[in-house]
Each structure stands twice: as structure tokens, then as C-alpha cells.
Simulated assay, not measured.
Amino acid sequence: MKKIEAIIRPEVFVAVREGLAEEGIDGLSIYEIAGCGRQEGRTALFRGSSYTMEFSPKLKLEMVIEDDKVQAIIDVILKEASTGEVGDGKIFIFPVEQAIRIRTQEVGSVAIN
């Protein structure tokens, strides 16, 4: 099993979510986050004054999936989340040693389905 964490732009979430659903991924966690990277913030206007926003709003998606689905999920995220601009985000993949469903005490890949 693998855990995939993807940092994406909020405006691409609907397309990413639809692509994940087509691949059979219906369980994921979503967090609203803010971060900075190469885009180094942006200038915004508030009540006629400009200021620099150091952090850009992003969404963090987390899902634990079976090993054989990893490449399909990566392909969906790359296709649907890419705008070609700086700040599109990142994908991180981690090994998962074990998963346990608390309610039934099921263990392994059956616990994540």
C-alpha cells in the first residue's frame, strides 16, 4: 500500500476529484492549506492598498491506495492539476506498512477499500 499526498490549486479540485472517482478512488482526505514555493507570493489589493501575500491557498489531498493503482492516480493528478504555471503543486508518495479499519478490525488492503 502507498499513501499519496498531493498539493494542488483549489480551482482544479473538481477535475481532479472527478478523475479520481473514474479510477475508483472514493476515499480521500482534503485539507485547506497555504504555502509558498517558487512563486514567492503574489501582490494583491485591499482597500486600495497593495500588499504581498506570502502564502498561496492550496488543497492537500491524502489517500491510501493499493500499489497497483499508484501510477493511474499519479497520471490523473498530473493531467487534471497541471496548468503549466509555477505553483501547480507537488505529489508525494509514501510506503504504508499497515492499515486497520477500526470498526471491523480488518487489516491490510481490505481496510482501505
Rank of each mutant, 00 (worst) to 15 (best):
G35R: 03
E22N: 12
K58A: 05
S82P: 02
P95T: 07
N113H: 14
G37N: 04
K60M: 14
I4K: 03
I100W: 05
K69R: 13
V86R: 13
I91D: 04
A6P: 07
L45W: 12
K2P: 15
I112W: 06
I65G: 10
A6I: 03
A111P: 11
F46Q: 13
Q39H: 08
K79C: 01
Q98Y: 09
K90Q: 13
A34C: 10
T83N: 07
Q105H: 09
D26Y: 15
M53L: 11
Y31G: 15
I73L: 10
F55S: 13
K2M: 09
A21V: 07
V16R: 02
E62I: 00
K69D: 12
Q71D: 15
A99H: 07
A6Q: 06
V86S: 09
I93R: 02
A21Q: 13
G37W: 00
F94L: 10
T52W: 10
S49G: 07
L45T: 15
R101Y: 06
A111H: 07
I65R: 09
E54Q: 12
S82M: 03
D75R: 03
Q39E: 01
A21E: 14
I30C: 08
V14T: 12
Q98L: 15
Y51K: 02
S29T: 10
V76K: 00
D67F: 06
R101V: 04
I112R: 09
T104R: 02
E80W: 06
G48N: 06
V96R: 03
S29H: 08
G27S: 12
E5C: 10
K58C: 08
Y31M: 14
R47W: 02
S56L: 13
T43I: 13
A99N: 05
E11T: 06
E32R: 15
C36A: 08
V70L: 15
K60Y: 02
I91A: 05
E66G: 15
G19V: 00
I33K: 12
D68E: 14
Q105W: 03
I91W: 09
S29I: 07
I91G: 06
R101G: 10
Y51G: 11
K90S: 13
V16W: 02
F94I: 00
I4E: 01
